[in-house]
């Protein structure tokens, strides 16, 4: 049970595994920097697609790489891949909670108006997404309650 000599139930992994993980992490870091230097909004606009999609693609790639890096750190450096089911469950719990918390954004995303007053009265669109094609007049007409439309 307790002691089988020196190792005593310890899982010792080769250094090469950690070294490979480090190299993978460094390559992914270089990759994320390289992709960030490419303005996909411009590339998309050049091809006649929506520039907003290009920005979204940039963000998606950066976050996907970050998640892959995070999984590599958790699985190999933190030994979760080799841990018990209970450890795996605990390791996932926090991130599942964080994902659920992000659903709060559904509320903000479905609001027609933002509850914040405009930042700069002289430039009502100063803090708005300048790329959005507004359906109404631009800049939006001032209103009594000083809310600014999202679109």
């Amino acid at each position: 049970m307790a002691a089988h000599g020196h190792g005593n139930s310890v899982h010792v992994f080769p250094i090469s595994m950690y070294a490979k993980n480090l190299v993978a992490l460094l390559i992914l870091m270089v990759l994320t920097i390289a992709v960030a230097q490419v303005n996909l909004a411009e590339v998309f606009a050049h091809r006649g697609w929506s520039p907003a999609l290009g920005t979204a693609a940039n963000n998606l790639i950066a976050m996907t790489i970050a998640v892959i890096k995070g999984v590599l750190v958790i699985q190999f450096f933190m030994h979760v891949k080799f841990g018990s089911t209970l450890v795996k469950l605990w390791a996932m719990a926090g991130f599942i909670w964080a994902t659920l918390m992000l659903f709060i954004l559904m509320d903000y995303g479905t609001r027609r108006f933002e509850p914040a007053p405009a930042f700069d009265p002289q430039d009502r669109g100063s803090a708005l997404n300048r790329e959005i094609e507004r359906t109404g007049e631009n800049p939006p007409a001032d209103n009594e309650i000083r809310v600014r439309p999202r679109y």
Binding site: T32, N39, N59, A66, K69, G70, V73, I74, M78
Partner: peptide, 23 residues
């Protein structure tokens, strides 16, 4: 080590979010 890797993990997300914002 677990604590230290977690600190590393947070930075993995902070780095692209602050330094590599796309246009």
């Amino acid at each position: 080590g677990l604590y230290w890797h977690f600190v590393d993990l947070v930075w993995i997300f902070l780095f692209p979010l602050f330094y590599l914002i796309p246009q």
